[in-house]
């Protein structure tokens, strides 16, 4: 039951997280910024619009946005209840989570290639490059959690972590959180990797792949992107919530506060950092991988 609450609230509140990020950026720039619920208005506006399909596209372009959203919702369903119900999931489901995220990416990338536009092909190639670098970082990070908690499923992982584990291997867990955060920025096309505000095709990653989508399909894509950010953020928030301990309802109470913090953090990073040049972004992701490996080595040492 608490798991269901977390999942449904995630579906409902995911666009709000983006709103928080946008407001944080506005505050840094000394503006009032868009309303917190602007994303919802945008979604409604897009849903009401008609849809234009390019004549060169095939059925793949038609189904890809819906499929990508379905897969992302499944990923959210896998992650959201894990903090409150330790029995949730199955051994090795973190690999399945990566697989789901990869599948969503596959649909987006293939629909971008389907349009035949050279810009979208460029974005697709960048997206695949980033994911190839961010997946090892994520996987090794999960490996650390498996090693520290001694459990193989997402639910068990977060259930198996407690203040004792944080005392003995807290440094390793913090490093995992840092690595996850870098991956979050890369996977959701946030600032050091990609600027979600620009519409300059030469530098965009995610936006450039969806240039040809319009109307309801674009609403699905926008919502899917918000949900993906929510999934990644909840991975990090769950990790830190295990340090607090407590009952599942305390978790539910703390969870929104944690998400708010992540939203503000993303906004802060976007305000104080410049976008890295395209050639340098892989180094940052490789750094995330290195941090994950470091955390793994440390966890083997701390838990002897």
């Amino acid at each position: 039951m608490p798991g269901l609450i977390l999942f449904l609230s995630g579906l409902l509140l995911a666009p709000l997280l983006l709103g928080v990020t946008v407001r944080t950026k506005a505050a840094f720039a000394g503006r009032r910024g868009a309303p917190l619920f602007q994303q919802y208005h945008d979604l409604v506006k897009l849903l009401r619009r008609g849809q234009v399909m390019s004549g060169t596209t095939t059925f793949l372009f038609r189904v890809a946005p819906s499929l990508a959203l379905v897969v992302t919702v499944s990923a959210a369903a896998l992650v959201a209840p894990s903090i409150v119900s330790p029995g949730w999931g199955f051994p090795g489901d973190f690999v399945f989570l990566l697989c789901l995220l990869g599948l969503a990416r596959f649909f987006t990338v293939s629909s971008a290639l389907d349009t035949g536009s050279s810009f979208e092909g460029m974005g697709a190639s960048r997206e695949v490059l980033y994911s190839a670098l961010s997946e090892p970082a994520l996987l090794i990070g999960f490996g650390v959690l498996v090693r520290v908690s001694g459990e193989m499923s997402l639910g068990g992982m977060y259930g198996g972590l407690g203040s004792g584990e944080w005392l003995s291997a807290g440094t390793a867990l913090c490093l995992v959180a840092v690595s996850f955060f870098i991956v979050l920025l890369a996977e959701n096309s946030r600032i050091p990797f990609d600027d979600p505000n620009t519409h300059l095709e030469l530098t965009m990653v995610h936006e450039v792949m969806v240039l040809d989508n319009s109307g309801p399909d674009f609403a699905l894509i926008t919502y899917g992107a918000a949900l993906k950010l929510w999934v990644f953020a909840s991975l990090i928030v769950n990790l830190f919530l295990t340090a607090l301990g407590g009952s599942s309802f305390q978790y539910i109470a703390w969870f929104p506060a944690g998400m708010l913090l992540v939203g503000v953090l993303v906004g802060t990073v976007e305000s104080v950092m410049a976008r890295l040049s395209l050639l340098k972004t892989p180094h940052l992701l490789a750094g995330a991988g290195a941090i994950s490996v470091l955390a793994f080595i440390l966890s083997t040492r701390f838990l002897q």
Partner: peptide
């Protein structure tokens, strides 16, 4: 290159552990 250097750093770390 920088990415290769990072890889070398990780290798050095593993080797020293």
């Amino acid at each position: 290159g920088y990415t290769t250097s990072l890889l070398a750093g990780v290798l050095a770390l593993s080797a020293s552990f």
